[in-house]
Amino acid sequence: MPLDEGVRTLVRDGDTVALEGFTHLIPIAAGHEIIRQRIRGLTLVRMTPDILYDQMIGAGCARRLVFSWGGNPGVGSLHRFRDAIQNGWPAPLEIEEHSHAGMANRYVAGASGVPFAVLRGYTGTDLVGQTDAIKPITCPFSGEELTAVSALTPDVTVIHAQRADRAGNVQLWGITGVQKEAVLAARRTLVTVEEVVDTLDPVPGQVVLPARVVTAVAAAPGGARPSYAHGYYDRDNDAYRQWDAVARDRASFQRWLDEEIGAAVPSGGER
């Protein structure tokens, strides 16, 4: 289905939405469509809220952010993310934060249909106590003290992949991050792809998501830019560097929203 219809059908105001893709295959086009449709009050979930979530937060889509690292990799800070947390612009942003290992395990638990996952981690850090999603747990076999993290079960997970076939089976390869777990943990899933093909020829290191766990596929060639799609196009590192200046002040960000997305955001606290 077309991307705008996919977003309209699957992403609703107030949903918990995970857009995943670890540097590679970030679903940028889908995120921009969420901005364009002015979907509001979202709990945005993502291990690495990079420039895409900077844009969605600045555009006022998010009420809450669940994450483990919020920066522009190799470049610096996310200015819209910081402005929301430090100054409540364009709206106050609640945060729930984790480590990467914690977030990855929360998706594993969600995908596995169990209420929590267990890991060695977090002990002694101040991350414990900031959220109810991290608790100590005693191993019933050894008596060892470990850490439990609650399962993540997004209402919708959105990912970008290289290919889908006409039956809706999805194929991705290269750095595949946490996308399989994020898809299997979600109630609904939207996958944008570089292309829809008749047959998914095998690729080394591929992940195939069977059609039965994919609610909708939308063709969105170039839909991960300025992130990249292994085998299709490279990461546009200059665009990541240039984002720093665009996001640095509210006026230039609003100009970007208006010109690039066609969705100017009011300067007040629209939700």
Binding site: T48, F67, S68, W69, G70, G71, S77, L78, F81, R82, I85, Q86, E97, H98, S99, H100, A101, L119, R120, G121, Y122, T125, L127
Partner: peptide, 13 residues
Amino acid sequence: PAVRLPGAGGAPE
């Protein structure tokens, strides 16, 4: 916070 930094990432583990 006076300054919000990126956060934990992989560092705690």
